[in-house]
Simulated scan of single mutants.
Amino acid sequence: MKKSLTALAALAVTGLASAQSSVTLFGVVDAGVSYQSATSRDPVTGATSKQSQWSLANSGYNSSRIGFRGTEDLGGGLAASFWLEAPISNDDGANGIASFNRRSTVSLSGGFGEVRLGRDYTSTFWNDTVFDPFGTNGSGTNVISTVSASTGIGNTNYVRASNMVGYFLPPNLGGFYGQVQYSFNENVRTSGTDLTAATSSNAGRYIGGRFGYANGPLDVALAVGQNVVVDTTSLTQKVQTINLGASYDLGPVKLFGEISNVQNKFATAALGNSHDSYKGYLLGASVPVGAGLIRASYSTVHYNEGVQGITGENPRVNKFAIGYVHNLSKRTALYATVARVNNRNDAAYTGDLSAASTTGYGTTGVGYTGLPRSSTGYDFGIRHAF
Rank of each mutant, 00 (worst) to 15 (best):
S4N: 06
S4L: 09
L5G: 03
L5Y: 03
A10C: 01
L16K: 04
L16F: 07
A19E: 02
L25F: 14
A31N: 10
A31G: 12
V33T: 10
Q36Y: 08
S40M: 07
T45W: 13
S55G: 15
N62V: 04
S63F: 14
I66F: 15
R69P: 01
R69V: 01
G75E: 10
S81N: 13
E85A: 11
I88W: 15
I88H: 09
S89P: 07
D91A: 15
D92G: 14
D92Q: 07
A94R: 14
I97A: 14
I97H: 02
I97K: 07
N101V: 05
R102N: 08
R103H: 09
S104E: 07
S107I: 09
G110C: 13
D120F: 13
S123V: 08
D128G: 08
T129N: 10
D132K: 14
T136Q: 13
N137S: 15
S139I: 10
S139H: 08
G140T: 14
G140I: 11
T146L: 07
S148P: 01
S150W: 05
N155F: 08
N157C: 10
N157H: 13
Y158Q: 05
V159K: 09
A161T: 13
S162A: 15
N163S: 11
G166F: 01
L173D: 08
S183P: 12
N185K: 12
T190G: 09
G192D: 13
T193K: 14
T193H: 13
R205H: 15
G216T: 12
D219L: 04
V220W: 03
V220H: 03
A221D: 10
V224E: 06
T233C: 03
T236I: 09
K238F: 01
V239P: 03
N243K: 04
L244M: 04
A246S: 06
L255A: 07
S260D: 14
T268M: 03
A269I: 08
Y278V: 00
G280N: 02
G284L: 01
G284P: 02
G284Q: 00
I294Y: 06
A296D: 00
S299H: 01
Y303H: 04
G309Y: 00
N314A: 12
N318E: 06
I322L: 12
V325L: 10
V325A: 04
N327R: 07
A333D: 06
Y335R: 01
T337W: 00
V341W: 01
N342G: 03
N342C: 02
N342D: 06
R344F: 03
D346P: 02
A355K: 06
S357H: 00
T358R: 12
G360P: 02
Y368L: 11
L371M: 14
R373S: 10
